[in-house]
Design a protein around this nucleic acid. Structure first.
Lengths: 336, 336
DNA sequence: CTGAAAGCGCTTACAG
DNA sequence: CTGAAAGCGCTTACAG
């Protein structure tokens, strides 16, 4: 069943059928009705390969989600889709693996589907540095700051990770904690954890405290299992730690379990703080104190900016979206 | 940059370039080397639209994941991908919304890409009844039993939800609980919750206990937020409940929080059981007693069966995969 | 408003 | 082993 069959069945030509299918204005009402009728009764669906092969002009907007297991992104994505729908934009979303090269993927997609723009949900600056210059449509990166890249077609909205992490540490110090452990991420400058770690060190310095990577930091990937192991390793290596700052909620959840298994009560014996503000942090026992990233604003401003730069010539922007340290039940004040 | 440019640059013809790109055996080593060299230096990537437009013969296998937030599916998917990779099969995976029509999607994909087979991760039997007959390649459905559909090209592997639920209830009764509440899902016969609810009723009957939907059941979707609300509603309506069986782990996690907020200790004042056996159930505080679905077997047998029915003419199978009631910390024995 | 025709970038018999 | 040519199912100027 092709457009040709529809043409034959409806008594119109190939061209007319195509025009009806694409909502071109210059088709008679009679023709439109008749063609649609046949299309419906045959359950016809145009072949998108042929369509994209011909169409030189851009169609939809593409959203690239980095890490299909990342709950934070899934939250943001939901709202992004609603937003685009409101604007009547067609959206193509692809879920990439956590380590996949999103820029390479975008380049390839550019050739196949010619999207009007890209919205990156998370990204590795390493990849952007390497070949983002091969992409020429407007783009927006969410949750990472892309200012240093200096690309003319890439805006970004993110949380000020450094300041947020600093605030977490300030809070912990103000509660009387001094030996604070940090877990999660790694030391690579291109990774999201890098900025958070910088904030940690800044706060330590401001409080005249030392922060020694070797004694107080343990890297790990973003999962409960790895958070569990990392917390355990760090706590065993440095039993004097009274508070743990996990650079992600899932890591924090794993850490809470590790502490419990070591016979430590939370927050009685050890305080724990997360990062992200996902649903799990709200329902855990005890409720997790965490940095809530503003997913609504991230989504809204990301979508608005992308749409605007598709339609007008605009300078790129790189802005922080407000975050909020939500104090819940997993942190205790240390009595002096 | 098209295959034509590569032909010109390499000094070979269009056909030869295409054959190199598709690993056809009848190409001289010299030609292959030269073409690949040009392809590489130009960073050329063939246009997949044109490719799929031409190729009449099926290519990859398609995996349709129902609900991109469902952690159970994400677990299974990971292993499925590894399995297919081992067999050298190309996989195309699509994430659908929880309420999207996976069968419609498969039909459309059939026309565009002609996959050799489909692997459905979750599904709504309602949609299968409606138009699965339009799909003619081999298919496998995971986590739902499709036997009643009687399709000649659809096998299924699932957990015996009814028996598992029955075992949960038996266990709860054996611990001395009598007023047991159940939350999650809905009463639709096409939904996964239906079978579990049947097991619940069976167990009640076997124990000479009554199970009144109105008093002991509260429907809800599969999320922590809804689990929280449902648990609260049910517990308020029927304060005598001593154990809660949540038809999904995420629901159970929400329910645990609700109980805690009502001042109930777990399992001291109320016991809670989940279903699925996702990672979160292992790391929660207290650890959640739950039915672990065998994601490994589900994935392995699903992949194997699909591959076999692609290559040979085989009768369809509908089998249960063993589950396991994992007794952890969220259930207490009631002293008589 | 409608039709005939060219062409999008590939693959694959068919000759040689 | 290689090339010339047909054709996959569409869209879109170009005429009329």
């Amino acid at each position: 069943m092709t457009i040709k069959d529809i043409a034959r069945l409806s008594g119109y030509s190939l061209g007319t059928v195509s025009r009806v299918l694409n909502n071109h204005p210059d088709v008679s009402e009679t023709a439109r009705r008749r063609v649609l009728e046949v299309v419906k009764e045959q359950g016809f669906e145009p072949n998108s390969n042929a369509r994209h092969l011909k169409m030189r002009n851009p169609s939809s907007v593409a959203v690239l989600v980095k890490g299909s297991q990342n709950l934070l992104f899934l939250d943001i994505l939901e709202r992004i889709q609603a937003r685009f729908e409101l604007s009547g934009e067609e959206v193509y979303v692809a879920y990439l693996d956590e380590d996949e090269d999103e820029v390479k993927y975008a380049i390839s997609l550019s050739k196949q589907r010619r999207p009007k723009g890209f919205l990156f949900l998370g990204g590795d600056m390493e990849f952007f540095k390497r070949e983002f210059d091969q992409i020429d449509v407007p783009c927006v990166l969410l949750t990472n700051n892309a200012e240093s890249l200096g690309a003319g077609n890439l805006s970004s909205f993110s949380t000020d990770d450094g300041t947020a992490a600093e605030e977490v540490m300030d809070y912990l110090y103000s509660c009387g904690h001094e030996n604070i452990g940090v877990i999660g991420g790694n030391l690579s400058i291109d990774q999201i954890s890098y900025g958070r770690l910088k904030g940690v060190k800044r706060s330590a310095k401001n409080h005249g405290q030392s922060f020694e990577l070797g004694k107080q930091y343990e890297p790990c990937r973003f999962s409960m299992a790895e958070g569990y192991e990392a917390a355990k390793r760090l706590l065993e290596r440095n039993p004097g730690i009274t508070a743990l700052f996990a650079l992600g909620d899932v890591i924090a959840l794993g850490a809470m379990r590790a502490a419990a298994d070591m016979g430590l009560s939370i927050p009685g014996d050890i305080s724990i703080v997360g990062f992200d503000g996902t649903a799990s942090s709200e329902y855990s026992i005890p409720r997790l104190t965490t940095v809530k990233q503003d997913t609504e604003q991230l989504a809204d401003r990301g979508v608005r900016t992308l749409l605007q730069s598709i339609h007008y010539e605009l300078p790129t922007v790189h802005e922080y979206v407000p975050y909020k340290l939500i104090k819940r039940e997993s942190v205790a004040e240390l009595s002096a």
